[in-house]
Design a protein around this nucleic acid. Structure first.
Length: 418
DNA sequence: TCTGGGGTCCTAGGACCC
DNA sequence: TCTGGGGTCCTAGGACCC
C-alpha cells in the first residue's frame, strides 16, 4: 500500500504560518522576476487565478488590495519543507521525498479503518509541529495514491484523508476522472486519447495493452498498469543524487552586451558547481544556453555543450570554458532575455575516470580552495565570497520586490512579536 | 510595458560499425 | 540487371512532473 502526502498550497501556506493576516485575502506568490504566478492560496484558487498566469494580469487588483502578491522566498520554503519532511519521517521510515511539498510512503497492509486513523493522526501532528496543512491519499499503487490525494483535497468533508483501496472504490473514481487528471498523463497525451474517443480514466484502463503502448509509449503504459493496480514504481528510500543540475534566470531587461552576459553565465556556473560539489560529484559536460524572449519575434535560442578534458567541479575552469564558448553562440544584434547553464553526466568525485593522454588536472589545492569557499558561503551569506568573473550581476536579475523575510534561517530576520 | 525555474525519462533518427 | 542485415552510441526533442 502507498500513501502520498502533499502540502496544501505549500508556498502560500509557508507565508501564512508567519503572517496569519494573509489568510484574509487571496494570496499569490510570484516567480523570480515577479513575472508570473507560481503558487496560490485556497482563496486565490477560488477566484479563478491560474497557475502560470503572467503577474501583470493582476497588477490592478493587487494595487486595489483585492489580491495580495508576494515574491517567492525559496530559502523559507526549503527550510519549511525540511521541517515537514522530518516530521513525516519520524512516523514512517520508508519514505521518498518526491518534491519540495510531497512525499510517498510504503505502508504495511492493515485494515482500512486503522490506515485512516493513522493518516488523520499524522496530519494533525504536521499541522501542530510545523503549521503546514497537508492532505493524504492512500492506494495500492503510487498513481492511485495520487488520485486519492486529489480527491482528499477536493472534498473537504473527508478531513484531508482519502483512501482508494477496493476494486469498486477505484473503478468508481476512475469513471469520474479525466485522463489528464491522472499523474503521468499531461495535456499532449490527453489530446491523443480524446482523438480516439477516450474521455475517462476508466475507459483508458479498459483498452488493449498494445494499443496503449503504441499510443502513449512506455511511460504511459506503466501509468495504465498502475491504475489497474499493478505497482510499477516503488519507494526509492535513499535520496538519490541529481543526474543534471541547471541554473538559469530570466533578466529584468534584455541584455545585448557580451560582458553582462558573461558575468551572468559565470554566476550561474558558480551556483551550479556549488550544488555539484554538495552532492560530491564531478561533471563530464557543461552546456551553456542563451535565448531571446519567446514572446517577441524573432525568437532565437542557442546552446552549446562543452566537455572539459577531465570531469570536474572546479568553478574557475568551468567558468573559463563557459566564457570561451559563449562567444561562439552570442550574436551582438540580439537582445537576450534568458540564459543558463546545465551540468550533466556525473561521476563520483572519488572515482573519477581519467583518460590516458590528458594529464590529470587533479590538484589537492583546487579541492581545498573550493571547500573553503563553500564553507564560508554556507556559514556567512550566499555571496560572501564570489569569483571576479561574476562581476556584480544582481542588477541584471529580478528585484524580488515583495519577498517576506527568511524567518527560520537568518538571525537578522527572525519574526518579531510585538 | 509586463510571461519561472528545476528536474526525469523515453524515443526517433543519424552516424557509425561489421 | 541486381544493392543486406544487424548492431551500438549519441543527441535533440518531446513528454511528463513539481
Amino acid at each position: 500500500m502507498f500513501a502520498l502526502v502533499d502540502c496544501n498550497n505549500f508556498y502560500a501556506s509557508c507565508e501564512e504560518v508567519f503572517n496569519p493576516a494573509l489568510e484574509k485575502t487571496p494570496l499569490v506568490i510570484s516567480s523570480n522576476n515577479d513575472g508570473c504566478i507560481i503558487a496560490r492560496s485556497k482563496k486565490a484558487k477560488e477566484i479563478g487565478i491560474k497557475m502560470g498566469d503572467p503577474a501583470f494580469l493582476y497588477k490592478e487588483r493587487v494595487e486595489r488590495g483585492e489580491i495580495r502578491m508576494l515574491s517567492s522566498n525559496f530559502t523559507l520554503y526549503a527550510d519549511m519543507s525540511r521541517r515537514v519532511m522530518q516530521t513525516l519521517e519520524s512516523f514512517a521510515p520508508r519514505m521518498e521525498i518526491y518534491s519540495i511539498d510531497e512525499a510517498f510512503f510504503e505502508l504495511e497492509e492493515q485494515p482500512d479503518k486503522r490506515l485512516r486513523e493513522e493518516a488523520i493522526n499524522l496530519r494533525q501532528k504536521v499541522k501542530k509541529w510545523t503549521g503546514i496543512p497537508i492532505s493524504i491519499g492512500i492506494g495500492p499503487t503510487k498513481t492511485i495514491a495520487k488520485t486519492a490525494n486529489k480527491l482528499a483535497k477536493k472534498q473537504a468533508d473527508m478531513g484531508g484523508v482519502s483512501l482508494l483501496i477496493s476494486k469498486t472504490q477505484i473503478r468508481t473514481q476512475l469513471e469520474k476522472t479525466a485522463p489528464d487528471e491522472i499523474w503521468g498523463i499531461g495535456h499532449a497525451l490527453a489530446e491523443r486519447l480524446k482523438s480516439k474517443g477516450i474521455y475517462t480514466a476508466a475507459q483508458l484502463i479498459d483498452c488493449d495493452d498494445s494499443f496503449i503502448q503504441k499510443l502513449l509509449g512506455t511511460p504511459g503504459y506503466r501509468t495504465v498498469l498502475e491504475l489497474r493496480g499493478t505497482p510499477c514504481f516503488s519507494c526509492s528510500g535513499e535520496a538519490e543524487k541529481r543526474k543534471s543540475i541547471v541554473c538559469s534566470r530570466s533578466f529584468k531587461q534584455p541584455i545585448s552586451n557580451a560582458l553582462d552576459l558573461e558575468m551572468a553565465i559565470a554566476s550561474f556556473v558558480s551556483r551550479a558547481a556549488e550544488k555539484l560539489r554538495q552532492q560530491k560529484s564531478h561533471a563530464k559536460f557543461l552546456s551553456v544556453f542563451i535565448a531571446t524572449s519567446p514572446f517577441t519575434q524573432p525568437y532565437d535560442s542557442r546552446s552549446c555543450r562543452i566537455a572539459p578534458p577531465n570531469s570536474t567541479a572546479f568553478t574557475p575552469e568551468l567558468i573559463r570554458l563557459a566564457k570561451e564558448r559563449l562567444r561562439q553562440i552570442y550574436r551582438p544584434q540580439l537582445a537576450y532575455k534568458k540564459a543558463g547553464v546545465l551540468l550533466s553526466d556525473f561521476c563520483d568525485e572519488k572515482t573519477e575516470q581519467m583518460d590516458w593522454i590528458t594529464p590529470s588536472t587533479e590538484n589537492p589545492k583546487k579541492n581545498s580552495l573550493m571547500q573553503t569557499i563553500d564553507q564560508i558561503n554556507r556559514r556567512y551569506d550566499k555571496n560572501a565570497v564570489q569569483f571576479a568573473a561574476e562581476g556584480l550581476v544582481n542588477h541584471l536579475m529580478g528585484a524580488q520586490a515583495q519577498a517576506s523575510l527568511r524567518f527560520t534561517t537568518s538571525w537578522n530576520e527572525l519574526l518579531k512579536v510585538t
